[in-house]
């Protein structure tokens, strides 16, 4: 590898971007997002939002939980309360963005080149990105991640559009299956990605700490879950590293 940053020729970037879209279509999250947003699109129609409002909310917000809050409360709750609920539901993006962007940074990458990857970061894109980005050279990662993000966002747009047009109430059994897609995909993909001790431990601890924190009713459940379980997993990781270095 050369010491100075090399710009990718445009045709290489376009090819890598396409590779990202292909990776998106191959991901289980593509189908999960279609299913998930099918329900959300139908809900948006029921509540009285327009077709394009629904599409715009996916483009701008790109977070299913926040969009569920928006669609179901924007007509009824005080707007300040809506904004508070949305912002509390989205705290997870802070550590996610902070964990994935350093993989894409290298000499010559400007801050504004990271704006699109930043905006595209959502659970699905993050999980697949954390798995796939380390497998490729650093200069390809931004274009690939953008392709991955655009591909997965397309799935959400397609699902939302179909759901909006169908709109007719889904049979309850099918509705249950659609809703269950999200937790299943998070569980399986995270389990597949947890190849290191710290990842597996952070995830397992989060599953235990989450309900315990929620039962205390102190609020900001997810933030506390992340801080407590993540820090314990990190401490165990550091201890093990130190012991390994001590014995070798």
């Amino acid at each position: 590898m050369s010491a100075e940053p090399t710009e990718q020729p445009p045709h290489v970037s376009a090819q890598v971007f396409l590779d990202g879209i292909v990776a998106a279509v191959r991901s289980v999250f593509f189908y999960v997002l279609v299913g998930n947003y099918l329900g959300l699109g139908a809900l948006a129609h029921e509540v009285g939002f327009s077709f394009w409002w629904m599409a715009l909310s996916t483009l701008l917000v790109w977070a299913a939980p926040a969009q569920v809050i928006l669609v179901s409360t924007l007509h009824t709750a005080a707007l300040f309360e809506v904004a508070l609920a949305v912002t509390l539901s989205s705290v997870r993006f802070l550590p996610m963005v902070a964990a994935i962007l350093p993989m894409m940074r290298r000499p010559g990458v400007r801050q504004r080149d990271l704006l699109l990857p930043m905006h595209l970061t959502a659970i699905s894109v993050w999980v697949e990105g954390m798995r796939l980005l380390p497998l490729m050279p650093a200069e390809r990662r931004i274009a690939f991640y953008n392709g991955l993000g655009v591909g997965l966002m397309s799935a959400a747009l397609i699902g939302g559009a179909i759901g909006f047009v169908l709109a007719a109430k889904l049979p309850p059994l099918l509705a249950a299956a659609l809703l269950f897609f999200t937790p299943m995909a998070i569980l399986m993909s995270s389990a597949r990605n947890s190849r290191t001790l710290i990842d597996g431990l952070a995830f397992a601890l989060g599953l235990v700490v989450g309900p315990v924190v929620a039962a205390q009713k102190i609020g900001l459940d997810l933030m506390w879950t992340g801080l407590i379980a993540g820090t314990v997993a990190y401490a165990v990781h550091r201890l093990r590293e130190a012991r390994r270095r001590g014995t070798s």
Binding site: R92, P95, A98, I186, F203, G206, D221, A229, T231, Y234
Partner: peptide, 16 residues
Amino acid sequence: WVRAVATAMLAGVLAQ
């Protein structure tokens, strides 16, 4: 550390 926190938060989303 931040990555561990993000992973644990995701588990929290799942548990919820």
